[in-house]
Amino acid sequence: MAWNLSACRGLVCGGVRGAVAAAAAVVLAAGAATGCTPRTPVAGDGKAPARTAPATASRSGPPSRHGPAAAAGGATRPAAQRPSRPSTAPRPAAPAPVMAAGHRSAQVRELQARLRELGLFGRAPTGYYGSVTTASVRSFQARRHRAVTGSVDPGTWAALRSLTRQPSRAALYPPTSRPLPRTDPRCRTGRVLCISKSSNTLAWMADGRVLAAMDVRFGSQYTPTREGVFAVTFKSRHHVSTIYRTPMPYAMFFSGGQAVHYSADFAARGYAGASHGCVNVRDRAGIAAVFARVRPGDKVVVHR
């Protein structure tokens, strides 16, 4: 029988191809069973893509806060909070006060006169910085919205000086420790010893004009000084009380045994004491000058 070579070759090729196909099927089946997938050729170059090795964590220790994980925004453990230390920088020292409690000087007298001009110091300047001056300074500082310390710092002193006038000698050394009150109408004419119980002052006046003034005190509640309009009955330069056996220098009697006179006790103890009804004066030189000018018959007005 004659063989057709072409047909034979086709049979051989077909058998070979069939065997190849069968082997490929077996390989695919084995791959599916093991979970592997064949590499797929990349169109254009006939090569399979290179595998990328998975990133692995370093075994030398935990990832650094500044390493790749931190750069990628991964959570990192915050550093321990350290307590803040107080600042050791020195604070600027407060300016030293110009004047403060306990000081005694001519400048303190000026301070008191300036406060008195503003109605914040109700007494005559004394030159001593005590509790009354401290309270007056505190009041001024509160009004000017400054630190209320009671001491006069450079800023407080500058502010006070800008709001007041330079005190005159009469303002620095007034004749009475308290301001004279409004003149009583009965004291506005003639020569009058005008005496106020509310202000504890005596004003020697002529036709409504004050010629001299001084501090006075009065009798106690058991021996009060009488009030009203009187006249000087007589004068006694070196008088001594016949009842109490006490000196009454420069006495000017105006109502029975009551008189205006100098009192050493008033000069020594101030308002801690009282008279037996007389008007005590503590300024010896002042009352001596008035005594020399007053005449019997001059009017005496004692009022509230």
Rank of each mutant, 00 (worst) to 15 (best):
Q141K: 13
T223R: 08
R39Q: 04
P49C: 00
A2D: 06
E227K: 14
G61R: 15
V26Q: 12
N280K: 14
A94W: 01
G10H: 14
A2T: 15
T246R: 09
V12M: 00
T133I: 06
T201D: 01
T37W: 12
V294W: 06
G35I: 07
V27A: 14
P68Y: 09
F140T: 10
G14I: 14
Q141V: 14
A100F: 04
A53R: 14
A203Q: 09
V216P: 09
P249C: 03
F266R: 06
L11R: 15
T133N: 05
H261I: 10
D298Y: 11
R178P: 00
A50C: 04
V12I: 13
T201S: 11
A171S: 12
T34I: 13
F266L: 09
S241A: 05
S241G: 07
G270P: 13
A96M: 05
G228C: 06
A264Y: 15
F254T: 07
V108T: 08
R282E: 02
G150I: 09
S255F: 10
Q141G: 09
V229W: 02
D298S: 00
A289Y: 09
R17L: 03
T134S: 14
F140C: 13
N4F: 06
A94N: 04
Y129M: 00
A292T: 06
A264M: 11
A89P: 09
R144H: 14
A288N: 03
M1N: 05
G150T: 12
P78C: 02
V26E: 05
T201V: 14
A274P: 07
P179I: 01
R59K: 15
A43F: 07
P41T: 06
P78E: 06
S136Q: 05
R169Y: 08
S84G: 08
L160E: 02
V12C: 08
G74I: 07
A147E: 10
R191W: 04
Y250L: 00
M99T: 04
V42Y: 01
T223F: 15
L28C: 07
A203Y: 00
V16I: 08
R188C: 05
V12P: 01
N280P: 03
F230Q: 06
M214F: 03
G35Y: 08
R182F: 03
C187I: 12
A7T: 11
A274V: 14
A171D: 04
A50V: 15
P92T: 15
A29M: 07
F230H: 12
V290A: 00
A171T: 10
R182T: 13
A259Y: 10
T233G: 03
P92Y: 04
P78F: 01
R116N: 08
V290H: 00
Q141M: 14
D184I: 10
P38G: 15
L193W: 08
Q258W: 04
P83K: 03
L163D: 11
T56W: 07
R217C: 01
R217W: 11
V12T: 11
A159K: 05
A159V: 11
R209E: 04
G190V: 11
K47A: 03
